[in-house]
């Protein structure tokens, strides 16, 4: 047994199809990029360990499919997420416009304890295609400020720009959600008045 608490954080990546969710994750975890586009079917999973201050944190990254036909999985996939990363493509206005519906969808489906403080991170990807940019940096920054000061990065999965930085922030924000000493206090004393016979559960 390693000493100290181990942390595993569930990170969900959302966004329209073909904005580069899988590429970002691959660049971050495997340091690889491919031009080839392969649609994600349902969801992909990758794990990465990072150090946040002196804590070793395992990120369990859920890369979801952007296509609408896979979105029925929502509720279950989002359950118990510690951080939600929303990705758009800086060369597609529509993908940026959809960010707010992704946010609403996530909040309504995952139903987190305090939605105002739930850690979101917004990533504008494909910074390498600056010449085709449709979404000005200022517009996206403004939106993030208006939506509870979400951290915002413009990234390039292809050129590995800002990818590590973005995920470092993601991990840090997700970790901040996990309260320092998570209180787990099972009842200590059963005796005290007559105990209720716990109805036969668990077995059979």
């Amino acid at each position: 047994m390693a000493s100290g608490r181990k942390h595993l954080l569930k990170v969900i990546i959302l966004g329209d199809s073909a904005v580069g969710k899988t590429s970002l994750m691959n660049q971050y975890v495997n340091k690889r990029f491919t031009q080839q586009y392969k649609a994600t079917i349902g969801a992909d999973f990758l794990t990465k360990e990072v150090m946040i201050d002196d804590k070793l944190v395992t990120l369990q990254i859920w890369d979801t499919a952007g296509q609408e036909r896979f979105q029925s999985l929502g509720v279950a996939f989002y359950r118990g997420a510690d951080c939600c990363v929303m990705v758009y493509d800086i060369t597609s206005s529509k993908s940026f416009d959809n960010i707010s519906s992704w946010k609403d969808e996530f909040l309504s489906q995952s139903n987190p304890k305090n939605p105002e403080n739930f850690p979101f991170v917004v990533l504008g990807n494909k910074l390498d295609k600056e010449s085709e940019r449709k979404v000005p940096n200022a517009r996206a920054s403004q939106w993030c400020r208006d939506n509870g000061n979400m951290p915002f990065f413009e990234t390039s999965a292809k050129d590995a720009i800002n990818v590590d930085e973005a995920f470092q922030t993601i991990a840090r924000n997700a970790l901040s959600q996990v309260k320092e000493e998570e209180e787990y206090k099972p009842t200590i004393n059963l005796n005290g008045g007559k105990k209720d016979k716990g109805q036969k559960k668990a077995c059979c």
Partner: peptide, 29 residues
């Protein structure tokens, strides 16, 4: 139910977290 590993007989929970994610995804589906 959020697919966070609690215990595994072999391997470390960390290495298995992607595999467990897939198992959970099958159940969710």
């Amino acid at each position: 139910s959020a697919a966070k590993p609690v215990w595994t007989r072999y391997g470390s929970e960390t290495d298995l977290s992607t595999f467990i994610g897939s198992l959970a995804a099958i159940l969710y589906k």
